[in-house]
């Protein structure tokens, strides 16, 4: 379990520095957290040239080992190509664009030489207002678009002394047992069936000015070059066969247009993911102990994202200037 601690200078909860997590539910990996709570990065030079890579659990990537996380792979690619720049994964499970936005000024103070801000999203709905979020900040649409801390939301992984003791004794199985028992009792049903099926209510979707609003706010939060990396679920299974189109292709188009108007380039990884599969059957998502094409990015997916990040930041329009 990741224990979170409050960091005053970063104005956010971060994984406890020096802690580590062994993940085996999806993938099988060990992740270490350094002084700034970055997954897979135990030592950080705050004065070096840096690219901040913002994201949720896709960037935190507990599913892959530290040297295979996209930030580490991207750093290696930059180094190999003569760029002395470190890519820092500022990812946390459950975080949303609203969280990154509020944290950007604090990170700008902590890291003196930020060259670019890269935001990775795996679901474009994370850029839309009124979405459920586990973390502190939320994007509201009513009465007007606004991003602010939500007093009701908050990280659920803050360490308690009891949880720490349980982890230290390697007795986290007890916590699992308690959760399981609570879940069973919570779902207790004694009435005869049939059980009425819940009707899926469509989530609130405001697609229009909201993309532009959040792009504007992101641009205002940082004056550095900014890139939005979009990792769709491509390829995916549909009715028994692999398909290579993104279900959210239309949304991605609108998002790209809105962000481009604010000077943020969006890189859609649908094509690189599809090409990787066509070339040598490499899937970006899925592990041996999870379903192919589903869930988080696997090491191959991280490599593809790292490559796309490098290409985006070294292309003529966003070229890094490291000299």
């Amino acid at each position: 379990m990741v224990h979170l601690v409050w960091r005053e200078d970063l104005q956010k909860f971060i994984p406890e520095p020096g802690s580590h997590v062994r993940w085996h539910r999806e993938g099988w990996a060990l992740t270490r957290f350094g002084a700034d709570g970055m997954a897979g990065r135990t030592e950080v030079d705050t004065r070096a040239l840096s690219v901040l890579l913002w994201g949720d659990s896709f960037v935190e990537a507990l599913q892959v080992s530290d040297d295979k996380k996209m930030a580490a792979v991207a750093t290696q690619i930059f180094t190999r190509n003569g760029y002395e720049v470190q890519v820092l994964g500022v990812g946390g499970s459950g975080q949303s664009v609203a969280d990154y936005l509020l944290a950007m000024p604090a990170y700008a103070r902590r890291f003196s030489d930020i060259q670019a801000q890269v935001i990775l999203v795996s679901n474009l709905r994370d850029l839309l207002p009124d979405q459920p979020t586990q973390e502190r900040a939320r994007f509201f649409s009513q009465p007007t678009f606004r991003i602010e801390p939500d007093p009701k939301a908050g990280p659920g992984r803050v360490s308690s002394p009891r949880n720490k003791r349980v982890d230290a004794l390697r007795l986290s199985i007890l916590r699992k047992a308690r959760r399981k028992a609570a879940g069973s009792l919570g779902n207790l049903r004694l009435a005869p069936g049939p059980v009425p099926r819940p009707i899926d209510e469509p989530a609130s979707m405001h697609v229009g000015d909201d993309f532009r609003y959040i792009a504007r706010r992101l641009k205002a939060a940082s004056d550095k070059p900014m890139v939005l990396l979009y990792c769709p679920e491509v390829p995916r299974f549909e009715q028994g066969v692999l398909v290579f189109d993104d279900l959210d292709a239309a949304l991605a188009e609108r998002c790209a247009t809105a962000f481009a108007r604010e000077g943020i380039r969006m890189v859609n990884l649908a094509e690189p993911f599809a090409a990787a599969f066509r070339e040598d059957r490499t899937l970006a998502r899925g592990f041996a102990n999870s379903y192919p094409t589903k869930g988080h990015l696997n090491p191959a997916g991280h490599r593809l994202v790292a490559r796309a990040l490098y290409d985006a930041l070294t292309s003529p329009s966003d070229a890094l200037h490291t000299d």
């Binding site: 299974f237 028994g240 066969v241 379903y291």
Partner: peptide, 8 residues
């Protein structure tokens, strides 16, 4: 999963 997507 494999039976429902056997062609792949």
């Amino acid at each position: 999963f494999t039976f429902s997507q056997y062609t792949e």
